[in-house]
Design a protein around this nucleic acid. Sequence first.
DNA 1: CTAGGGTTAG
Length: 694
Amino acid sequence: MFRRGLNICKNNNGFEIESHYDRILHSCTSLAFLSQIHSILTTTGIIKHSVHLNARVIIKYSDFLHLQSARFVFNATDHESSSFLWNTMLRAYANSGFCSEALEFYSLMRKTGIRPNNYTFPFALKSCADNLLPTYGKLLHSEIIRTGFGSDIYVEAALIDMYAGCDFIQDGRKVFDKMSYRDLVCWTSMITAYEQSEQAETALHLLHQMQQESFCLDWVTAVTVASAIGQLGDARRAQSVHGYAIRHAFFQDLPVVNSILSMYAKCGEVEKAEIIFHQTKQRNTITWNSMLTCYSQNGQASEALALFEQMKISDVNPNQVTALIVVSSCSYLGSQQLATKIHDFIIQNKIETNLTLWNAIMDMYAKCADLDTALRMFQEVPLSHLDVTSWNTLISGYGMHGYGKEALKLFNNMITHGFQPNHVTFTSILSACSHSGLIEEGRNCFSEMEKLCVKKEPKHFACMVDMLGRGGFLDEAYELIKNMSSEPNDEVWGALLLACKIYGNATLGKVAADNLFHLEPQHTGYYVLMSNIYATSRNWQEVGKLRQDMKNKGLRKPAGVSLIEFDNKLHGFHTGEEFNSFTREIYEKVERMVVEIKMVGYVPDLSCVFHDVEEEDKHGMLSYHGEKLALAFGLMNVSDTGLAIRITKNLRVCSDCHLAFKLVSRVYGRKIIVRDVNRFHHFEDGFCSCNDYW
DNA sequence: CTAGGGTTAG
């Protein structure tokens, strides 16, 4: 009935039929419905008479990523005569990301003798950018000039995008400069090109020029500008973009909200990002991910994980990006229970795990003291599918746990299997050697760097200085620094300073410290280290001087926090935690703990106390160290004695706590795993896996 | 009758 009615109509007025179906196709939202319409159009023969409807069906199929059906429609048409349907098919390929198909199709078009026009080139160019084919793009450029379309504004804009996409910003700029007329889109394209290649200042400079030519930003430009300012981390200019967006009512557009949210995140303005996040009622996955990133990038990993719990019960679905952020937050916190939970979530929600995410999960397990799982994941992937990051992750994981020999084996395996190591590989292997005291092996690796074509960077020297310094080769370490080809940085001097602390070498320590105070005057850790060196030699005068120096500069010792997982939650303990009903019990436990380990020979190591306070106060301050509170909490709550008590600390564990933990592990018969900023310590029966070498 | 610039992660 339906069909006959249409046929009657068609006989009366063919044009009306066409626009009728055009409307139906336009509002078509499912592939099944589209196929139905398509078959009606074919059997009635309506489609034969309308080039326009053919084009509409092709585009519609490509919207559903059914390029085969689209191509089928194209092939059935009489397309020899004009370039219109060719352009449509090319558009279908290009806009759906089928870049190589698009380019193949373009060359077929040329071979068939169809002349490209101003509509053809933008689509062909787009496929070069997405496909990173600068050579082909340049070829097209000369063809564009030859065929006389070089000053079509759409073609020029596409050229700029193509060059930008292929990382040839300068060639894009040449096109831009030659344009006789530019509209807002061209300006935005050029500005985006600079922003994407991390030339934020140039991007903003161009924006300024654009405004002088009386163009106003639209919401797309605003997004790009927000991104550029985020790159610079300029909180003042961030505020002004925010204001501009509000004044021009761009805040209706979610992409603008998201880009401003992440701009604030990159400027370290967590509170402002939070306000925007809470004000936004219609959030999408990007909104959530931006806020998660904000927390994770600003050192608030626990907040990120808490937000993730909220996201789970929201109506928005986490994706691969979400997984990456959450996984890296968990790596930072080092909680094994959470690691398993997050991994399960990824599997249950069928989040596609590419190699990047796979490596991140491996890293999470390694940093949550579950090396076995990390290794299993590594072995699950065929060798040919692994990348350098996979190897680096495992090498550094083994290194952190003090398995230097295994790390070296992995490193050698990697070379044997023909993988090209990079700068991260050497940082990992050198620090692995350092943690295990494998000095000779470390020296060998270091000297092999040139042969393996990896440039020696300051951080590699820092690893070497750390390794030699811990091993007691202070002079060799200092010589290495003096012979560096580039200027030694704070990491290098920091490693030397640490070694001087271990060996109580105040003279060399002062050399390192003076360099550090010059390079990083705001970094409190170095003042603390140097004054610890003075404190060890009871040079209270110098300790006082340094402390006054810090006071004058308004510096404070960073707050140490120790995290312990219990009941699927993380509990944080700060040094000098306030006394309340909850902590009272814990303090009492610490007191009992100290009494018990004193019976097996514990003598508090007072050198860890920074301030030169009265001796009896010092005892008090030591027992209030966050890691001791966390340990007491663990002893009270982790009732399964076969289970290790796991603690993560944001600073280095101090030597007093290290000693206390060893003794607690013996007296209480408990395994304790501590991750500090540098490495893992596995305490068991009075010993630590680091062999007191850390 | 067909075209272009955009947000998160790494």
